[in-house]
Structure formats: C-alpha cells, structure tokens
Design a protein around this nucleic acid. Structure first.
Lengths: 337, 337
DNA sequence: CTGAAAGCGCTTACAG
DNA sequence: CTGAAAGCGCTTACAG
C-alpha cells in the first residue's frame, strides 16, 4: 500500500506538503498540487483510514442495532439508513439484537469500543433497563432511537404515533359496525406495543364499547404461526368477536390464513385490521386493511438527525434532542367491511 | 476517554507494562497484572480501536455488498453473515448496490479505502465487467462471492447449483404431466438466471419436449408486479401453456395472484413452480411449489470461508480458493399437481 | 510556499 | 519482570 511518504520520496518533497496538496490546502503552489495529485493517482494512493481515524478521532462509521433483520419493516429502515449514510460518506455497521437485552448490551459495548461516530437503535423486546443507553449518552456518543424507543432516555427519537394510529385502526373497526373487538397485542415491554394497546383501549372507551381484557391476547414472537394459533384460540374462547386489531401484518396474515382454513368469512364474520402495511398485505386474499408505517423514511430521518448531532458535537455546539413523529395512514382493503 | 498512559500514570508504571498486562503477556508479574486490570476496569478503559487498527493493520471489520436488502433471501443471508461474524469478533459494514454496476464499483472502492479485512459480495444484475473485483484480489484483500457470482473471477464462492435445481424444478413440471412449459427468467447478466434458464432448457431437451424461445419471458426487476404482468401476457400469447417455471417466488406469487384474479385454476389449468422458498410461498393460496435455497446457511458459510482466508493471509499461508455448493431441495405444494 | 516536528494511542522487539 | 524507544501513517500548528 502506497503511503504519503512514498509519494514524498518519489517527488523529493516533504510528507507535509504532500498531505496538504492532496487535501487542497491553499498554501501549496498549484504546480506542486498538480504534481502530487498526478503521482498519487498514478500510484493508486489511498489514505490509510486507520491513521486518519486516529488523527481526526472520527471513523465516518456509525453503528446500527436492530432487533431482527429478516423483517420487512426493519429491512426497509436499514435501506433508508444506509442510503442516507452513503450520501454523507458514512458507513453503517449493522448488529442484530434478536430481541435480547443481553445481546443488545454487548453490542452497544462493541460499538462503543469500536468508537463509531454515532449509534442508531431500535430496542429489543427484552429491554426494560436503560443503563446501557445512558452510558452511550454519558460517553457523548450521539444516539438516535427509532421505532422501539425508551421514553425516559434523553436522546433524539424518530417514531410514529402508535397510540393514535391504533386508535384510528380500532375506530375503523367500530365504524364498520364491530361491537366485540379483540386485540392481538405485542409483548409487554416495548413502548410501541403498549401504545398500540392503549390506543385500542381508548377507542373502545370513547365509543362506549366495554373494554374486556379477555379479548386482549398477548403475543410473544409476533410470527405468522402465532397469528394462526391465536386466531384459532379466539374461535374457541369468543365466538362473538366480530373484529380484531392485530399488532402486525405478519401476524394478521397468519390469522387470515387460519380463518380461511376454518371457513370463517372475512370480513362478513370477522373484520381484521393489521399494522405496518407490509406489501404482502395487498396480495393475500382477502387483502388486509392496515396502518401504513413508513420504514424507509424513518431510516432516512433517523440518520439525518444523527448526522446533525455528529456534526454539532464536532463543532462543540450543544446538541438539542428532537422527537420526530412520522405520519401513518389507514389503508383500507378487503379484510374490513 | 481513558488511555494506557493514564492507567500507567495512575499506577506509576510504564505504558509498555500496562499494555502487556492487559493483553495477558506472560512476562508481567501476577501482582502487576491484577493491579492493572483492576484499574483499567475501574476507569472503564476501552482500547482505542483506531490506534489498534493502525498498529495491527487490521480492523476486525468486513464489508458486505448486496444487491438489495429488502428481500427475504438476502436479508436471511445478511443475518447468517452477521451472526457468524459476531461469533468471531468481526463487525460487518453493509452496502447496497441496488443492482447497479456503477454503485457496486464505488462501494468496493469505499470498502477498500476503509481497509476492511475482507469483502463478501453478491453481484449486481448490472455487473458484466469484473475489473473492480480483480482489483480487490490484486490488493490481496480476501473476497468471497456468494449467490450471484462471476465464474471467471479467481476467488472463493458459495453458491447453489442453479442449473441442477432449475432442471429438477422443470422436471417436476414434466413429471406432473406438463407439455408446454414456459419460463419467467431473470435478467441476462447474472450467472444464476443464466444457469436457471439452462437447467430449464436442458430438462426440456432431455425429456423430448421442444424448446420454444417464445415461451421464455425475460424479466427485469423481478417484482410481484412483473409476475402479474407477464402472467397476463402469457395468457394473451400462449393459451396452451400448462406449466411455468418462475425464477423467483416473489414473481411467482405475482403470477398466482394474477391467475387467481383471471379465474385461471392452479394447478388444474396451469402448474406453477417458483424458486427460493420464501416463507410466503407456503402461505398464499394455492401454496407454491418451489426450490428451497438456504440463505442463512449461505451467509454463514460465506463468512466462515472469508474468515479462514483472512487468518491464512495473516499467517502468510497461501490461500486456496474454495467453491462450496449448497444443497437445494424441491418443496412440493399445491401449485403443482 | 515549504517542511521539521509533535502527536494521535497503541504494540512489540529489544535491552537490562 | 520492567521499560525506553521506535514506529504504524496520517494531520496540523508553527517556523522560516
């Protein structure tokens, strides 16, 4: 690998001048600049980023921790982040927490000791303690949380209004005439499953429907299989249910598949609404009414905010945290009347 | 951030000894070691990876270039790679080529100048020239290609036998009685769409079915929409077709959706077989017969080989390239008789 | 306009 | 068992 020193020797000038010429410093003569640049490209010189990092104390690399990569919503977020980062000359190291608090903690440690310039994170379902997050903040590494966040942690956040979106979804079921509405909710810890549950509950109350906790099913891994399982369970427990608000499209599609199998007519016998607007929602039969959740935009926005914080930190500006709430919208399809 | 120097000053010993103690060198007394380690953890010391990289000339980071992240097969591969890498203490920088040759080239340059320890790549559909790849090899950066490879490039590869798998898929259609079999093929450049096409053609020939090039449809972006579009086109062009071998499940699902819409019975009127065994294949109606392509394993294997090459290079061993062919299998479901 | 020098924070060959 | 010294390849404040 070619170094500055080699270029300098080649031309019989100093390393300092070579470095400056390459970086376009004004105090280098045009002649020298031209010569240096030509020689550099001829020798295929590439600055040693390890040395540059050490000197400049930044790596132009950020870390991203995500609960699960093989997931349409999250892979869309990743895509948004990577694209935006690339535009600004940043690279992205991706880690997957597998919804585990322990792993998430280890990975943050890893990223911190790699000295990434910033961290983007969506919390694991298992995360109920935030010491590992406040440690990042204490170390003054910029961090932006998205989608699955911790409200109490003082940092920038990019989210949707889960509560409002869930309220609208539930209200849609009420509007089409449902009287007994079940909810397949996500795990207990994540803020978004809490908020979606609260939105559901609020909508019932506001429209004079009794809240019945036995109609709320607590899911664990949010899979297709769980959707099918609880759809079946619901048929056993509550024959009278005429609508379900389901936390995630994948689960909803599992439920639809089970109802199809059992010959339950959707939406005639039961209305179903999902969440996220995974593109398969438009493809299955009946197609799924759902809430559109803008993953790609969320990723882009999250990086933009992180980028600004990284720059501000470099300039020693005080960082003011932002909370961005992206819009969602109801997408009405065949699974609701 | 705490440095070795600070620990050394704290204890009144030299930086050398601190460094050695922390790394468990045998020529440091137990007492000193204990003291140093305690102090280090008390001060929350984390080695500055920039300095370590510069000294050791390795970053424990690899680069991954993938055509498209939001894609079930590729996100499974990514998951396999990241998991395996983490086990060995490696981090993964992910870049997305968007199937573009130009982007792919730029990204390789980026990774090379970041001095990643190795590169994992699945080629873009637009890649027909391999200079950027041979450059990696000339620079002696280990590289492993997977899934979409360039046969002529001298490096390790992890693939499936696309030709054989396509042959089996087509043969399955023949076995269930199809006489006029169409093929929705992928773009012209990628080796895997070439091989799948060749497997299809060979199966026809071997079973005395005439090859008719008008039955081969050339797809571009391999989307759901394209599947629907060409399914419709096929109905216009060739009413007599009784089977289709489709390059990818997503496209096949688009086709199924279109046939469903048009009231064409699957498999009674037309048999369909896909490729990749995306989990949605088991969910749609009718469920899709397909070829299982082990993405997660492919990712794991690709990293393992890269890891070995990185280690071998470090030991100045000569690197012998491997070509691993992973098994595929036919998964028979409702879309074929 | 050019360059000598210091220093980023480590690691390791070498001396004692 | 301990440590002084060199060096990885840059950047930049400073002197001339």
């Amino acid at each position: 690998m070619v170094t500055l020193k080699q270029i300098a020797e080649e031309l019989g000038i100093s390393v300092t001048t070579v470095s400056k010429a390459l970086k376009g410093y004004k105090d280098v003569s045009k002649k020298t600049k031209k010569l240096v640049k030509e020689t550099a490209s001829m020798l295929n010189y590439k600055p040693n980023s390890f040395a540059v990092n050490l000197r400049t104390k930044e790596s132009k690399t950020i870390g991203l921790i995500i609960p699960e990569i093989v997931h349409h919503f999250f892979s869309s977020v990743i895509k948004g982040i990577i694209e935006q980062a690339e535009k600004k000359g940043y690279l992205v190291i991706i880690l997957q927490s597998n919804e585990s608090y322990e792993l998430e903690k280890k990975q943050i440690d890893l990223l911190l000791s790699k000295r990434v310039d910033g961290i983007l994170i969506s919390l694991a379902n298992g995360t109920g303690d935030y010491k590992h997050l406040t440690e990042i903040i204490e170390q003054e590494t910029p961090i932006v949380m998205f989608d699955k966040i911790a409200k109490v942690v003082q940092c920038s956040k990019v989210i949707i209004d889960d509560r409002k979106a869930a309220y609208q979804a539930t209200k849609h079921l009420i509007d089409v005439g449902c009287k007994r509405i079940a909810h397949f909710r996500g795990p207990l810890l994540p803020q978004n499953s809490i908020d979606r549950f609260l939105g559901y509950k609020q909508a019932l109350t506001d429209h004079n429907l009794p809240y019945d906790s036995s109609l709320v099913y607590l899911l664990d891994d949010m899979s297709f299989e769980e959707g099918a399982f609880f759809a079946n369970q619901l048929l056993i427990d509550h024959k009278d249910v005429d609508g379900i608000f389901i936390n995630t499209d994948l689960v909803a599609i599992g439920a639809i598949s089970e109802f199809n199998k059992k010959g339950i007519k959707i939406p005639e016998e039961i209305n179903i609404i999902g969440f996220s607007n995974w593109f398969m929602a438009s493809v299955i039969s009946p197609s799924l009414t759902t809430v559109n959740q803008p993953g790609f935009e969320m990723g882009k926005k999250a990086f933009k905010i992180l980028y600004k914080e990284i720059k501000d930190k470099k300039k020693n500006k005080t960082i003011s945290h932002k909370e961005i709430v992206l819009d969602t919208e109801l997408v009405i399809r065949e699974s609701t009347n």
